[in-house]
Amino acid sequence: MTTNLSQLPSDLPRPVDDGAAAHLVGTAIPDVALACTDDTVVNLGDLRGCWVLYIYPMTGRPDVPLPDGWDGIPGARGCTPQSCGFRDHYLELQKLGADVFGLSAQTSDYQREARDRLHLPFQLLSDASLQLKEALRVPTFTVAGLELYKRLTLIAVDGEIRKVFYPVFPPDRNADDVLAWLK
């Protein structure tokens, strides 16, 4: 059985704000070099201007089953609709002076498949060694032996985090929420 990754189940559990991201506003983006789906390396600390960094657990693939119980983990399901929302609003975000990166703990090869399949006009960053967890204390969770990031979105201006969306729910509305905040 395949799962339609573009649709969210109607009974998706809502994540609660556990305070794990409360410390991030006003924090400098650290010098963390991450592999990018365009085969470059991006140092987050070097980014200037306005950046939206949406952090998600993992992108599902149509040919790979999701971990057992995935839909029951609050905040886990919805990476594809979240990415598609940023894709669909990308030009609006750029008109407001913001650029976008998606970020997960998956490898760039895995992410490249999602970027291409979903026709994302921006790149995805791989943090397979969880450097942001160490540098910023970004929250994670563990499932099926994998440590993954909890879903959150950061807006950084000239290297400083100005806004944090956490928890992000529903994930398919995250880009709309970011747009509203930027306006």
Rank of each mutant, 00 (worst) to 15 (best):
W51S: 09
V64S: 13
V52N: 00
D88I: 08
W70K: 06
V52G: 04
P81N: 04
P57Y: 08
G72M: 14
C84T: 09
P62L: 08
G85T: 03
R61H: 15
T80L: 01
R87E: 10
T59K: 11
C79M: 01
P67L: 14
G72I: 02
G78Q: 06
P74A: 11
T59C: 09
D63R: 10
P65A: 11
P74H: 13
C50G: 11
G69S: 11
R87H: 03
G75A: 13
Q82T: 04
G45P: 14
R48E: 04
G60W: 03
G49V: 09
P62G: 11
Y56L: 10
D63T: 13
C50V: 12
Y56S: 03
D46C: 10
G69L: 10
C50K: 02
C50H: 03
M58D: 10
W70S: 12
P67K: 11
M58N: 13
P57H: 02
V64W: 12
G85A: 05
G60V: 05
P65I: 05
T80C: 09
W51F: 09
R77D: 04
C50L: 11
L53P: 00
V52D: 03
P57N: 11
S83I: 00
G69E: 12
P81R: 02
N43V: 11
D63E: 15
Y56G: 05
C79K: 05
G69F: 10
C79G: 01
P67H: 12
D88M: 07
G72A: 15
I73H: 05
P74V: 14
F86R: 00
D68Q: 15
T59P: 00
P67R: 12
D63L: 07
G72Q: 15
I73W: 10
V52L: 07
G85P: 01
S83N: 06
L44M: 03
P65F: 11
G85S: 07
I55F: 06
S83G: 14
P81F: 08
V52K: 00
G75T: 11
P57C: 03
P81E: 02
G69C: 10
W70I: 11
I55E: 05
L66E: 13
V52T: 00
R87D: 03
I73M: 08
C79N: 06
